[in-house]
Design a binder for these strands. Structure first.
Lengths: 243, 243
DNA sequence: ACTAGGTGTCATAATACTGTCACAATAACC
DNA sequence: GGTTATTGTGACAGTATTATGACACCTAGT
């Protein structure tokens, strides 16, 4: 048995009419584990936005026909896409354009040519600022899946009802397997900072979590067994132990 | 149950007296997900324009009876169709015709024989230029349909009365299913940016939305169930859950 | 001005979750 | 085996969170 952590990739839509530039950007972005969507014109771009809801748009300033500006304006007009972060990319070093782009609602501005590193930095900055970047971790141990973005635990695709504290505790355990944590440490990490709670309370929540992980069918694997008691020390989420 | 996002197809009216050519065009266009309307003469063409309001017209230069030119002139005279983009298609390589066509008001000009790719490119260009292309997203979950352009929600083809805020919220949820959003995030995405509103207000609108989605007949599916509350976290629009 | 619908806020009811305790069960150690 | 320390368990009452109905305000259309 083994722990798998999956980061739901941040999707970035690259809008540029020149394929070579798209390729270059794709390479730079995929190296950083971004998922890249492409569009060569505004129609495709809009289609991508609707179909795949990217987390961020890299938009070329100069697009044939309707320029990128129009596309940006449209995004900003529509309720659904008002929040979508956009970084303008342009060959023009013109300051006026920069101002105009930012006024319309671009979140940042990059001028060609640029070093990939700078672009990545700006992307991260924008994502951080906009709060879009909620690293959607999905942690998996065999059939046990914990999805933080969906705030959901499931066993073999079957949703498990679980309380908030139990959820946090399981999330903590699954991201720190094998290691033993004292009740006091668990209070710190799961409950957070300064709480004045009996240490024995941890036991109760451990029990609730175990109960939640028990299989509905008796012949299924019991994931509750992964939560081990270490007498005199605390608890441990062990993946090696079973399976 | 499953989320389907649909781009309301761009309707293109093909006006040509030769059926084989219409077929050829239909094939090329439908491959690109355009919706194709056909007309063999100007009378049919006009009828199609009135009945189905296409987004663009592909007009053959040489039509029996009234030529394509006359049809185009008529379109340009009428207020309702002044803006309708028209691409002339002709077998004549005659430059004069080209000029004449453009003067009357054709937006572009293609000579037979042409490669489909070029035609598609020109269509996209014209649509982009004219701004006519407003691909209207429609999101569907089973019998629940949300049409952004029409600003309308319907359940099993039956229109649901719904307020603006509820509409936006449903639209947001349907384009981001499964994921949990905090009240604060919902305020950001649905209300937009900087608003100073109580978080509890979200609850009230959630309730209004749920109420709106309740079935009129008690035996119908209750789409309100798709909106789940996640205690301590926020709300989630889950499609997997039910069905 | 008047209506009608939509919005945000509040008070209160309805729930779900928590922390704690008492006691049972188990392990460790003599 | 007997004793003690530690953990498991069920119950319960308090607490926090959410659902709901009511209301006053606002805005647009008449």
């Amino acid at each position: 048995m083994e722990v798998k952590k999956t980061m739901q990739a941040v999707k970035i839509l690259v809008v540029d009419d020149e394929a070579p530039i798209r390729d270059m950007l794709r390479m730079a972005l995929e190296l950083r584990d971004f998922e890249v969507l492409e569009a060569g014109d505004t129609r495709q771009a809009y289609q991508q936005v609707v179909d795949n809801s990217p987390h961020l748009v890299l938009l070329d300033w100069m697009l044939p026909g309707g320029s990128g500006v129009q596309f940006l304006q449209r995004l900003r007009k529509e309720d659904l896409t008002k929040q979508l972060p956009v970084i303008m990319v342009t060959a023009k070093h013109d300051e006026d354009n920069k101002v105009q782009g930012l006024e319309i609602g671009a979140d940042d501005y990059v001028t060609k040519p640029f070093v990939p590193k700078e672009l990545i930095a700006r992307i991260n900055a924008v994502l951080r600022r906009s709060g879009t970047l909620t690293p959607d971790a999905i942690i998996t141990v065999d059939g046990l899946k914990l999805d933080i973005a969906c705030h959901q635990v499931s066993i073999d695709e079957h949703v498990v009802e679980i309380g908030p504290t139990e959820f946090k505790m399981l999330a903590f355990f699954m991201s720190h397997p094998e290691r033993v944590y004292t009740r006091s440490q668990l209070l710190d990490h799961v409950w957070g900072g300064n709480v004045y709670i009996e240490e024995r309370t941890v036991d109760v929540h451990i029990r609730r979590l175990r109960k939640a992980l028990e299989p509905s069918q008796p012949d299924q694997f019991n994931y509750a067994d992964l939560i081990q008691t270490v007498r005199g020390a605390g608890y441990r989420f062990s993946v090696k132990a079973a399976g």
